[in-house]
């Protein structure tokens, strides 16, 4: 079982833990990040949702200060330079690549990264144990990482980001290439970390993940943020109408006014008030053999905003 730690909170700015303002970064002719701005309040999971190459990883790298922005600024808890040592100590980042050493064990990887953040002795041992619990790797702690499955490596990759108990966590596509079991475990752990009071930035191109985990989402494409807000507000603003898919019993009463043409016995139409429309048809004598109502989702939001699907 995981032991809950009490970790140091560093005079948190209640308004915004991370504030990104007019950030720009180009690599040659490619504008990887093009004038983006957002704020992430304390203790929120903030999603950066976009297809591959949208600029998510570059944004993460700019936030931690390992690449220099062409313009704009990043403030962590109100301080402008994220490369400052005391700020770095409060940020944990799990890169998209598996940034762990195959020839070291899970325990050795965690201890090594812990030492880089100044941990030692009993504290280090406690944190390593805590992280091994978090990643579900206690029973394999002394095995070389090279012998782990992809899911185990992913979990360890995330655990290495949190070994120093940071209040801010940046997770860059933490579920890439993992099995469903490991994916669910990672989701559970992220929710647990959020409940601990951490601020989490989560990049993904899986809208299901963003919908499950994120309090707020920024939809990013070609280096620009297209929309940003809570899931509900994004859907409400950009999701469009819901979709009704039904199989009807034939014949359909002649007085029933169908909103779309029948395809054999199948009826499909979009509506801003699907439940009311379904009820109205039932009142007109239409009998349903099956019925499915699809609410608009982030996939549809992205489609509406870009004209492309997320995984195109």
């Amino acid at each position: 079982m995981l032991k809950h730690e009490t970790w140091h909170k560093f005079g948190r700015n209640k308004l915004s833990m991370i504030r990104v303002t007019n950030l720009k970064k180009a690599f040659g002719a490619i504008r990887a990040v093009d004038d983006i701005s957002f704020e992430i309040p304390d203790n929120q999971v903030f999603g950066l949702l976009g297809p591959n190459g949208a600029g998510k990883t570059t944004t993460i790298n700019l936030i931690v200060g390992i690449i220099n922005a062409d313009a704009g600024s990043v403030a962590i808890n109100g301080e402008n330079d994220p490369t400052r040592t005391h700020l770095r100590r409060r940020i944990g980042a799990a890169p998209q690549a598996l940034a762990i050493y195959d020839n070291l064990s899970a325990e050795e990887n965690l201890a090594f990264f812990g030492k880089l953040y100044g941990l030692s002795g009993k504290k280090l041992k406690e944190r390593v144990d805590w992280c091994l619990d978090l990643a579900g790797l206690q029973d394999r702690r002394r095995d070389r990482v090279g012998k782990y499955s992809g899911g185990m490596k992913r979990r360890l990759n995330m655990a290495c980001a949190i070994v120093h108990d940071p209040p801010i966590l940046l997770l860059d596509e933490p579920t890439v290439g993992v099995d469903p079991q490991s994916r669910n475990m990672i989701f559970d752990r992220i929710e647990m970390l959020k409940n601990d009071g951490r601020t989490i930035v989560y990049t993904t191109h899986y809208m299901e993940e963003a919908q499950r985990l994120c309090d707020r989402v920024a939809i990013i494409d070609h280096g620009k943020i297209l929309a940003e807000g809570t899931i509900d507000s994004l859907i409400e603003t950009h999701g469009g109408m819901g979709t009704v898919n039904a199989e009807l019993e034939l014949p359909v009463p002649e007085n029933a006014k169908l909103p779309a043409e029948l395809n054999e016995n199948r009826l499909s139409f979009e509506s801003s008030q699907p439940l009311q429309d379904i009820a109205a048809l039932a009142d007109a004598g239409v009998k349903y053999r099956s019925l499915r109502v699809e609410r608009p989702n982030l996939e549809k939001v992205f489609l509406n905003l870009t004209g492309r699907r997320l995984r195109d």
Binding site: R88, R89, A99, F113
Partner: peptide, 9 residues
Amino acid sequence: TFLRLRIAP
């Protein structure tokens, strides 16, 4: 891993 080292303080 170099990226992770760069992120460290």
